[in-house]
Amino acid sequence: MAKAKIVKARLVANWTWNGVNEVCGICHVHLDGCPPEATAKFQTPGDDCPVVWGECKHAFHLTCITKWLGTQSDSQSCPMCRRRWEYSG
């Protein structure tokens, strides 16, 4: 039997954040993608653009929710349900 010799291979992998298939409520870009940033350097989806969950189970891009919480002085609320925002472990 003739042996096959692999000269070149192009591998493709698929990934998605666990359990979310929706857009970020703040920037309306898919949670698997990157939020649009005016100043940031080229960002790639994945660990560069993490997704975080609140205790209320709502998910956002980390950069988006950080910007929102930064504008709220006293009570930090979820942009979706207005419940008190606590990062979910």
Partner: peptide, 13 residues
């Protein structure tokens, strides 16, 4: 991703 690389002017968020 909302990202445009290359010659195009980057849009503001």
């Amino acid at each position: 991703t909302g990202i445009v690389s290359g010659g195009e002017v980057r849009k503001k968020g």
